[in-house]
């Protein structure tokens, strides 16, 4: 619980350091000031590093204060909901161009609905998934002429 609070600041510190190092490893410009492309990202990374450290210290100071959101995030079926949504999103990304828009969208929306809304409401879920993937396909592809796979 307490360590959870520190994950974000630590991540940001790490991120700033990585950005700082890669800023200095950027290719130098052949035209004009060779360091032109480097100043801005390097400067920003340094500021970001400073602020992440201050942020870390703030969180350390308040380490005993509870953050109700974190507690909620780790309780009940929330962690599963988040992970599964992301996972479905990844699967959808792979399916999208391979099996086409209609089928992949129906599967994705259906899966999300079944998972979030529960199996008991399967009628609603199926109807929504079917109608919605068809309507969105029709609206985008036919009416707006967006090229969908």
């Amino acid at each position: 619980m307490k360590t959870m609070k520190l994950i974000v600041p630590f991540f940001l510190i790490l991120f700033s350091i990585v950005m700082l190092i890669s800023s200095f490893n950027l290719q130098k410009a052949n035209l004009g000031n060779p360091y032109g492309p480097i100043y801005f990202p390097a400067g920003i990374s340094i500021f970001m590093l400073i602020f992440s450290i201050i942020y870390l210290m703030q969180e350390l100071k308040n380490i005993h204060k509870e953050n109700p959101s974190i507690k909620l995030m780790l309780s009940g079926r929330t962690p599963r909901l988040i992970c599964v949504t992301i996972l479905f999103g990844i699967i959808y990304s792979f399916l999208f161009e391979r099996v086409g828009f209609l089928i992949s969208t129906f599967l994705f929306l259906g899966a999300l609905l079944f998972f979030i809304n529960g199996k008991r409401k399967w009628i609603v879920n199926t109807v929504v998934a079917l109608s919605f993937s068809f309507i969105s396909w029709y609206a985008f592809s036919e009416l707006l002429g967006v090229s969908l796979p």
């Binding site: 996972l87 699967i91 792979f94 399916l95 391979r98 099996v99 599967l107 899966a111 079944f114």
Partner: peptide, 10 residues
């Protein structure tokens, strides 16, 4: 089971 079916289709 459902997920693995999705992967199979993919």
């Amino acid at each position: 089971g459902f997920v693995s079916i999705l992967i199979l289709i993919m």
